[in-house]
Simulated assay, not measured.
Amino acid sequence: MRKFAFLVLTASTLAATAAWADEAPICTDRPTKANSTCTVPKGAWQVEADGVNWTQVKASGLKAETTAVAAATLKYGLTDSSDLQVTWTPYLQARVKGPGVDDKTDGVGDVWIRYKTRVHAGDKVSVALLPYVKIPTAAKGLGNDEVEGGVAVPISIALDGATLTFGPQVDLLLDADGDGRHAAVTNVVNLARPVTDKLSLVGELWTSTNFDPADTVTQVSADVAAAYLVAPTLQLDAGANFGLNRDTPDAQLYVGVSKRF
């Protein structure tokens, strides 16, 4: 049923393409892990959703796979420079396989609430603030049942024919032993370049360091993606992330769609 609804949404928006010719192009926080500095226009709704998002980790003879289906972010434009965002995954599956092992856990994911406000919008540089909070709604075994939060500061720089985005972020997370909180610091360097008036290619380097008292863990990935503008308010995308050290998932693949109403 979820897959059918996803196909109906895509088909219906394709059929309405001609009516959007004069609208400003959609601006999204996907694909890749970087956040944009743009916001949804005041009074408008926008959906940014994964069709499927698959992640794989191999270690010690075991293979762990996580599959998220129809994870969606619903956005609403509050002002000309701010929006409210709610993200939820209706189906999430985590599976570990290996010699004598085949464990599977599935269910719904956590809810993430974000508020984005653009604090600077110059000719070359734009800056936004993006605080968030995670509401623990995930099924047992798919989350830590605790409220967590943080803030990102996306910074975009217009180059000659491309856009360079930096994404520093600080999170306050639950300690692994469940007693106390610690910080995690994330950054991303993202370069997006249009190839045609509809197709854009993106490359980025992502890093995250989790300062848990039990063990400090740093993850690094190289990410690539493509976004295709079917119509001014409809975008399709696909991407792949590749882990560059042993603490990072080996591979992550996804496809998605974004639509503004």
Rank of each mutant, 00 (worst) to 15 (best):
P41M: 05
T207Q: 13
Q56V: 10
T79D: 10
L199V: 09
N53R: 14
A176E: 14
K3G: 09
Y228M: 09
F6P: 02
T37A: 07
D103V: 14
A94L: 13
V40N: 03
P25C: 00
V153N: 09
D171S: 11
W20S: 11
G161E: 10
N53G: 05
T55F: 01
T10F: 11
L191G: 06
Q169I: 06
S82C: 10
Q46S: 12
A71S: 14
S60L: 10
N187F: 04
G43Y: 03
Y228C: 02
A176F: 00
N190G: 03
D215S: 11
T87H: 00
A49C: 08
G239T: 01
K259A: 12
T218I: 01
I135Y: 08
T87K: 01
Q252W: 07
D83L: 08
K124M: 14
P90H: 02
D160L: 09
V8E: 05
R260A: 09
P25G: 00
A59G: 13
Q46R: 06
A24S: 13
L164H: 03
A64I: 10
K140G: 10
V52W: 05
Y91C: 00
N245P: 01
T39W: 11
V101Q: 12
A138P: 12
C27W: 08
T186C: 01
T13D: 13
S81D: 06
R246T: 11
L129W: 05
V57T: 13
T17R: 13
L92G: 00
N144E: 04
S208K: 12
G109E: 04
E146Y: 12
V86G: 01
T248H: 07
A64K: 13
A138H: 06
L172A: 14
L201N: 03
A158R: 14
D171R: 09
T37Y: 12
G256E: 07
P25H: 02
S60N: 13
L129I: 12
P136F: 02
V47Q: 01
V125I: 04
L173N: 14
D212H: 03
V57I: 05
I157G: 10
T137H: 00
A5N: 11
V47R: 01
G150F: 01
P249M: 09
E48P: 00
A240V: 11
T186S: 15
F166E: 06
D102P: 02
D179I: 04
H182C: 00
V185N: 07
L205F: 15
G107E: 02
V52M: 13
K75R: 15
P168G: 13
K104E: 06
A121R: 14
V170Q: 15
A24T: 09
D177N: 14
R181S: 09
L201E: 06
T10A: 15
Q252M: 10
G77R: 03
D237A: 11
Y76C: 07
A16S: 10
A44T: 05
G143T: 02
P136H: 07
P41K: 01
T39G: 07
A138S: 12
R30I: 06
V147N: 05
Y254W: 14
T67L: 15
P90Y: 10
G107F: 08
W206N: 12
D106M: 08
T233Y: 00
V230C: 11
V57Y: 01
P232N: 08
G43R: 05
A11W: 07
L62P: 04
D237T: 08
A18E: 14
V101K: 15
I135H: 02
L14I: 07
A5F: 13
T117I: 13
G100V: 01
Y76R: 10
F242I: 12
G167F: 05
A251R: 14
A5V: 05
T67M: 13
